[in-house]
């Protein structure tokens, strides 16, 4: 242990406080990642698809539809053209037009032909379709994509706001704890100050202790978070392409390896962010304590 040249930080509650904040921040980050993935998925799916509806009363419907499909296949950036079957169209419209009759047709309604065009980039399909089949209606999913993108961005912004708020509350809590500690040791701090201790000497000792306690709190918070994250990973596992073979769980090492393999279903970025939380907590603790103590010391001559 180094020789004391200034009082340290007195706080038994700081690690617990930081642990809870880390838990909240971890949950928010997990939520944020989920929302980001969802928003990206929506946006990407909508951005790269166009729906074409051809009314059922179009003359020479079958031939002209076939011609249009051929034209679309030849169009640059179009990767796939799929014609929905009548059953698929019925299923698609059922929520708006009611139950399909037992005969398999919606009563009194002739269904349009629906084409789903997958593409990369932003080809001008409107012009292509209008030239080949003017009766067809082009539903640009890009507009929906933009709306979904907007919604996704709003959700991501909300999640970031939650993370920022948690960080702000953590900073405030650490600041108040440090201030209380300095006030409790006011006499000792004044003694070392009047014996010639530099402001940074005093603040660094308190900040070092705050960083250490915050790191301990952050690691504890991560421990609290692990069951939740493991549960999330297990829920996500069926959707993942990376479901490896089940590992034996005979020893603690096997159990840990199995747990670690489960976690790998989660996005790498989320795991990195969660891993960084204790270090971020320690940095925030150090900076907050330094600032609080240096400001407090300014009142001494």
């Amino acid at each position: 242990m180094s020789a004391p040249v200034s009082p340290g930080l007195r706080s038994g509650s700081l690690p617990l406080l930081v642990a809870l904040m880390t838990l909240l921040a971890g949950l928010s980050l997990a939520g944020l990642t989920g929302v980001q993935i969802l928003a990206e998925g929506w946006s990407s799916a909508a951005r790269n698809a166009t729906t074409i509806e051809i009314p059922s009363d179009t003359p020479q419907l079958e031939d002209r539809t076939h011609t249009l499909i051929q034209t679309l296949h030849r169009t640059a950036e179009v990767t796939n053209v799929r014609e929905l079957s009548p059953q698929q169209v019925q299923t698609l419209l059922a929520p708006w037009l009611g139950q399909v009759s037992s005969s398999g047709h919606l009563p009194g309604l002739s269904l349009p032909v629906v084409l789903i065009v997958a593409h990369t980039g932003t080809p001008d399909l409107g012009a292509v379709v209008h030239e080949a089949l003017p009766e067809a209606v082009v539903e640009e999913d890009r507009r929906w994509g933009e709306r979904l993108n907007g919604l996704g961005s709003s959700l991501v912004a909300c999640a970031w706001l939650a993370v920022s708020l948690i960080a702000a509350i953590a900073v405030l809590s650490v600041g108040m704890t440090v201030r209380r500690s300095v006030m409790a040791q006011r006499k000792a701090v004044e003694i070392v100050h009047f014996l010639g201790a530099g402001d940074l000497t005093i603040s660094s000792r308190i900040a070092g202790r705050a960083a250490l306690l915050s790191l301990a709190g952050g690691l504890t918070g991560l421990l609290f978070l692990s069951p939740v994250i493991t549960m999330l990973a297990r829920k996500l596992a069926p959707f993942s392409h990376e479901t490896g073979p089940a590992l034996p769980t005979n020893t603690w090492t096997d159990i840990f390896a199995s747990w670690w393999a489960t976690l790998h279903v989660l996005p790498r970025m989320l795991l990195e962010e969660l891993g960084a939380l204790p270090l971020i907590a320690a940095c925030l603790g150090w900076m907050t304590a330094q600032t609080v103590v240096l400001v407090w010391l300014r009142r001494l001559p």
């Binding site: 020789a3 040249v5 009082p7 003694i191 010639g196 000497t201």
Partner: peptide
Amino acid sequence: YRLIGEWTVFDNVALPLRLR
């Protein structure tokens, strides 16, 4: 006296030299 109660007498006495 203004001695720091949490420290030993030795640490209190050594403080000015350590600060230097």
